[in-house]
Design a binder for these strands. Sequence first.
DNA 1: TCCTAATTGAAAAACATTTTCAATTAGCGC
DNA 2: GCGCTAATTGAAAATGTTTTTCAATTAGGA
Lengths: 143, 143
Amino acid sequence: MDLDLDTLKTQLSEQGYKLTRQRKAVVAVVTQAHMRLSAADVFAQAQRVCPDLGLTTVYRTLEILEELGAIRRVHLDDGCEGFAPASIEHGHHLICSRCQETVEFEGCNLSTLLKRVSGQTGFTIQEHWLELVGLCPKCQRKK
Amino acid sequence: MDLDLDTLKTQLSEQGYKLTRQRKAVVAVVTQAHMRLSAADVFAQAQRVCPDLGLTTVYRTLEILEELGAIRRVHLDDGCEGFAPASIEHGHHLICSRCQETVEFEGCNLSTLLKRVSGQTGFTIQEHWLELVGLCPKCQRKK
DNA sequence: TCCTAATTGAAAAACATTTTCAATTAGCGC
DNA sequence: GCGCTAATTGAAAATGTTTTTCAATTAGGA
């Protein structure tokens, strides 16, 4: 289930964000993406559509899209900070370690675990971060 | 259950690493820590014991300690890259969002989830990243 | 069409991390 | 203890990413 480009544009408008050429280009890239992308990746792809695009704007737009829940921050192999399209509200990401393809899944069903850990430690649990890394079917065959 | 300073020193020796003043200082800091620390935090604390310590060495030592499994990389609020002491081999971290205290827990028991996601997507799952954020008992009271 | 606040890109700044390299040092064999 | 040597060190430079600044541009309501 892909992110819908038009829905996202409408959402931006509704939040009072102007629909600039640059934002449209960035939004187009992330809605079409099926893999995690770094800010630089998004920049490179979006620049093909909109040559006068700055990296600064890419960072700013990605921040807005994360706020809207359209993308989610994920890890990259090195340090951190990649982005993957998020169509499921409380979803998590499964990422292919070879081709970077990302798939979302929902129903993480950690409630039992959370209750146990909460009981054992006395912590109130506010959020959880879960991310899976593996090999997608295509890459399994290639190997 | 704390990391044992002496055990860790022995481990370093056995792996052929020299026990320098600087490494001892860094090891002392991370074994005593009960919270996630950035490289800069470790540097600041270790420098009190060993004034002629460079940040470069801190990075290098943290890398070794991660290799040995004595610490684990965790998220920081901003981007990434904090370190927390790891005494449980396949443990995960629960972090207090207010005071940064970290607690380890084991038995994440995700096998059912992993099987389901694997079946639905066709991915082979290689690793999982799970991290919980909440409020520790002390900080709940303070609030 | 006009107006204005939002948005932009370039450049600079800020930051974290890594690399380079000559000087120092831990720990082995003696 | 003593000397030797490879490992280790810190300072400085390099690298890479993200943020800030600021004057110029622009989207979109009036």
